[in-house]
Design a protein around this nucleic acid. Structure first.
Lengths: 214, 214
DNA sequence: AAATATATCCCTGAAAATAGGGATTTTATT
DNA sequence: AATAAAATCCCTATTTTCAGGGATATATTT
């Protein structure tokens, strides 16, 4: 019995590496290598997804990243197993992946034996998460409880963005056609919600939340 | 004639990939694989560097990164060739590497043929830079001219860091045992040097310059 | 229907930041 | 020794931010 794999990673060299690692495990055959999620989705929409046993994907890719790819794949083809292999270990991302029913997650600095073992485990129908991943996940969950959950409304985010873009309260009021008192209130709320002391803290949060272009 | 290589990369899987790519090129033999620059430096200090023909290194590694590794290696063993293989293409980094006489730079998403060809070229004594790298480098040089060269003194950086850490002028004065007028002057100078409008702009620069922990 | 969240607006007073002028002393650099 | 750069300090006036109190209307959720 041969198992068919798809590999998605924008780093050719990594794919090459993976291919040669898999050469030593003859029960696996790589059906497709793709450099972003979109290519995989396209392939699966044309060909039969039932023939594929496992999708191995990176997280950071252009066009469509691993989070999105996993979400789409698991929605359209729930039986297809997915394994994330990434160098970025981020609790929040792990959480998103798990919510979307990912089957495994191995960091790129894992030994090749671990990778092959992860693939076998997942194809058997079990989940596989490296201990670094488990650690990062529980750490992140702890952090989250500690930081409660700071959720900003879309209006708040809009104002925060403009604040971080060096506009004064009056300027923001003019941009959004609101009273400057309103912006003052937002400012105040943001400072207390985000638990910062001043504009510098707000700016840092805006960056961390990816509100700014640059 | 066998050529001896050292590979430094903190991602095991990448090293594995590289090793299998190099299996097809029998004139190369990998003497050492290391997961950070410090291990390479240690090896070279104990063993004869003359036996090694090329060091292939990643840029982002714990303990000692590729920039620093290249600098040290080129200083101590000028004859030893160095090739950077990284997924981050950053004009500033390329500049630093070139200033320290790096012999080549190939992005991780290059084809394996290009990598092997780069290695051969460098061992012959020539330099090899991928076209993406050349592009990024010239782009960065253009940017630099456009952005003049904003150089901050160490004191300015120190103050900027404290500003971005949400301290008020008076608080910074107390921390550094300076008059608040002094800090006011620094603030003013920083705003004009960095061409920003307020604290938000200063904070963003502090982050971009890597002045903050977080 | 009631409770909660969101978005909007208002006021005061104090603290801090910004813009505009300066100046002096110490430390490199030529 | 002269010049330049860096680090320090001072002053005034204006603008902006921050902290502290509010209020009201409209959605949304329970």
């Amino acid at each position: 019995m041969k198992y068919n794999l798809i590999i998605a990673d924008d780093h050719k060299m990594f794919i090459d590496g993976l291919l040669s690692i898999l050469k030593d495990a003859p029960e696996f055959s790589v059906t497709l290598t793709a450099k972003n999620g979109a290519q995989v989705v396209k392939y699966l929409s044309i060909n039969s997804a039932d023939d594929i046993h496992l999708l191995i994907t990176d997280l950071t890719m252009p066009e469509m990243d691993g989070i999105e790819l996993n979400r789409i794949v698991k929605e359209k083809y729930p039986k297809l197993k997915t394994l994330v292999v990434s160098m970025h270990i981020d609790g929040g991302m792990i959480d998103k992946l798990i919510r979307n029913n990912v089957d495994g997650y191995v960091p790129k600095n894992a030994e090749k034996e671990e990778l092959v073992s992860a693939i076998r485990t997942i194809i058997k129908g079990e989940k596989y998460f490296s201990k670094e991943i488990k650690q990062a996940y529980t750490d992140a969950m702890f952090e989250e409880k500690k930081n409660k959950e700071i959720v900003l409304t879309s209006r708040e985010k809009e104002v925060l963005k403009l604040i971080a873009e060096e506009n004064t309260t009056q300027e923001i009021a003019d941009i959004l056609f609101l009273s400057k008192h309103t912006i003052e209130s937002y400012r105040k709320n943001l400072i207390s919600k985000l638990q910062v002391k001043n504009l510098a803290g707000l700016t840092k949060h805006a960056i961390k939340m990816g509100l700014l272009e640059n």
